[in-house]
């Protein structure tokens, strides 16, 4: 088997005296959908923040390997924008869209790191810049089609429904051409219909060649969608495996349901 595209070894993060992540190991391979689950406060979002360079972890290594070039990069001290440029993009749990920009513009921002024109291009608009701009517009539009927002391109992001905002977050991240997409609770606040559509969307994203690492509380979604599952509790990895394995893992049930329930129901 080829090398993992994301390889995390011994990642540790402290806040003051509290250990938010404790020597965490995790890997993602190309073409996979991997889920990261765990009770509230288990450190999942902190983990994402470490991966994307928003927090500086205390210990551990994060390696990112491009599946196309095979080039491996150690993400130590890299700025968030550099990490996105390498090919790992994320969405936010508490939606962070550019609310006073249009839907299309939000996605176009995602193209920023794949385009180059600056002051000169902006002012004189040489042919190269015009082509780049048109390409940005077209690609962004196609991504919006993919996530089902092509009817609302000129709407302000603020005016979208909650579910649509979540999809726009995904579209914006996709625009950066990631080989690994990190989704932070993409189904939060969605109704069952929207969730079903989301499952379908994530599958299509995977089929288009983006690996997906997602944080999710919706167990049904996790179990139907993911190839592998990692379980976090109090910053430690307590289990990993296929959805089937995780479903019967005693430690996971304990973490989720508490000690007593386990004692009573599992003699």
């Amino acid at each position: 088997m080829s090398k993992p595209i994301l390889d995390v070894i011994g990642l540790t993060m402290n806040f003051g005296g509290i250990r938010a992540l404790d020597h965490l190991d995790l890997d993602v391979y190309a073409g996979e959908i991997v889920a990261l689950i765990g009770p509230n406060g288990a450190g999942k979002t902190t983990f994402f923040n470490c991966l994307t360079g928003m927090y500086a972890p205390a210990e551990g290594e994060i390696r990112l390997t491009s599946p196309e070039t095979g080039k491996q990069t150690l993400l130590a001290g890299l700025k968030p924008n550099k990490i996105t440029e390498l090919g790992m993009a994320r969405t936010f749990q508490n939606i962070r869209l550019f609310s006073r920009m249009t839907v299309l513009e939000n996605v176009m921002i995602g193209r920023h790191c794949r385009t180059r024109s600056l002051i000169f291009g902006a002012i004189f608009r040489p042919r190269k810049t015009r082509e780049e701009e048109q390409d940005t517009v077209d690609r962004s539009y196609r991504i919006l089609e993919k996530v089902g927002l092509s009817g609302q391109v000129d709407e302000l992001a603020d005016n979208l429904s909650y579910g649509a905002q979540r999809r726009l977050e995904i579209a914006r991240a996709l625009a950066t051409d990631p080989f690994l997409l990190l989704l932070d609770e993409p189904a939060a606040g969605m109704n069952p219909q929207e969730t079903a559509e989301l499952v379908d969307l994530i599958r299509r994203i995977r089929d288009d060649g983006h690996a997906v690492l997602l944080i999710e509380h919706d167990m049904k979604l996790v179990m139907t969608l993911s190839d592998r599952v990692f379980v976090l509790d109090y910053g430690e990895k307590i289990a990993q495996g296929t959805p089937a394995e995780i479903g019967v893992n005693a430690a996971v049930i304990k973490a989720y349901l508490g000690e007593e329930v386990l004692d009573e129901e599992m003699p």
Binding site: M54, R96, H112, T176
Partner: peptide
Amino acid sequence: EDETACQAMG
């Protein structure tokens, strides 16, 4: 609009 999101978008 949002510096953090900006950085995350590259």
